[in-house]
Amino acid sequence: MTLQYSVLASGSTGNAIYIETNEKRILVDCGLSGKKMMGLLEHIDRRADHLDAILVTHEHSDHIKGLGAFARRHKLPIYANAKTWHSMSSLIGEIPLDQKFNFETGAVHTFGDIDIESFGVSHDAAEPMFFVFRHEGKKLSLLTDLGYVSDRIKGTVKHSDAYILEANHDIQMLMMGRYPWNVKRRILGDSGHISNEDAGLALTEILGNETKRVHLAHLSKDNNMKELARMSVQQKLEQYGVRAGDDLGLYDTDPAVPTRLSAI
């Protein structure tokens, strides 16, 4: 069976991603209420009580809002690194010991028939990390909430079959928008979020012949638009001789509507 995935929700209001193989069903982050999470899973014809684990990228509320209640209700194991556990403990409530597991940054864990590698990113959280999923020669890389894409990260995620990649903001919209300067400076900084142009430039260095799908994720509701993100990334790719089309698809994500369950 192929590796399947859906971006259940992506944006500043909540984030969650579903990963499935023949043996395992995994949720990455749980940034919406338990009720909304169940609805999102039902939208792709999946159920919360069939999940095997929840992986946590970092402790910001748009990634853990519903985590505690959802995991307790469905008795799901949670995997996070030590600093994230420490930072989110007061935010998610008491978690039974038999549901708490460490997944350290830079480690590789095998869950049944899928290998999952974590890698650190630059973001204003305790120890944020994202993931590469490998299954039967296929590779899916998830990277959002990062101030810049380092050479180390590029090496880790290079030549993936599919990417879920942040395209948070259009720089001009951000600079002309209503946010106070300190917030704009945070977003633009090395521990903030990457822009549409940053995303396109990173893609020119990590795409491989195997890459078929790129999902542009974590778009700001105030400082970006789906069409603008797609156009900006596509233009950057074309500057470097890469054309999105039949062989490489650029796809939207949404804060409230899951992407269809896709296979690689």
Rank of each mutant, 00 (worst) to 15 (best):
D151V: 11
F131Q: 02
H58P: 08
R186H: 14
T156W: 04
H86P: 00
V28H: 07
S160R: 01
L228G: 08
H86M: 14
D252E: 10
A16L: 01
E42I: 04
E20F: 03
S10C: 04
I19T: 06
L8V: 07
I153D: 01
D254G: 07
L32N: 01
R25C: 07
D113C: 06
Q235D: 15
L40E: 05
S160K: 00
D252F: 11
M88R: 04
L248Q: 06
D247I: 15
C30H: 03
L228Y: 07
Y79T: 03
K35W: 07
E23Q: 08
H193P: 09
A229W: 03
A126D: 09
Q235V: 08
T84R: 01
N196P: 06
H74I: 08
M176H: 10
K24N: 03
A16K: 00
H58F: 14
L27N: 00
G11R: 00
E127Q: 12
S10W: 02
I116S: 01
M175T: 09
L55V: 11
D49Y: 14
H63N: 12
C30A: 15
Q4D: 14
P255T: 08
F70D: 01
N168Y: 10
T2M: 14
S12T: 13
L174Y: 03
H63S: 05
N182P: 10
N15S: 10
K75Y: 11
D170Q: 07
I26V: 07
D247V: 13
D254P: 06
L67R: 04
G192N: 00
A107H: 12
L91Q: 13
K65I: 02
V56W: 05
R152H: 14
Q172F: 09
L76P: 02
E197L: 12
K65C: 02
Y251K: 12
M175L: 15
N223S: 12
K83N: 07
M38Q: 13
T211R: 03
R230M: 12
D161V: 00
I54F: 10
L51M: 11
H43S: 15
D198Q: 04
G112F: 05
D145Y: 15
I187Y: 03
A48P: 04
A217T: 10
Y5G: 01
V183C: 07
A244S: 15
A162K: 03
T57P: 05
E136H: 09
N209K: 13
V157T: 03
F70K: 03
Y240T: 08
G34L: 09
R260D: 14
H50Q: 13
R230D: 06
K139H: 10
E20M: 04
G200M: 02
P96Y: 06
R185E: 14
H215L: 13
P128N: 09
E59S: 11
D151L: 09
A199C: 13
I78K: 07
E205Y: 06
A263L: 15
T84M: 05
G155R: 15
N81K: 06
V121L: 14
T211P: 02
V56Q: 05
N209L: 11
H135G: 02
M38Y: 07
L248K: 10
L228T: 12
E197G: 06
R47T: 10
N22P: 00
S118Y: 05
D190L: 14
L146G: 09
I44P: 04
L8G: 02
S89D: 11
E205D: 11
I17K: 02
N81V: 07
R73W: 13
H135P: 04
D62I: 05
I78W: 08
V121Y: 05
K221V: 12
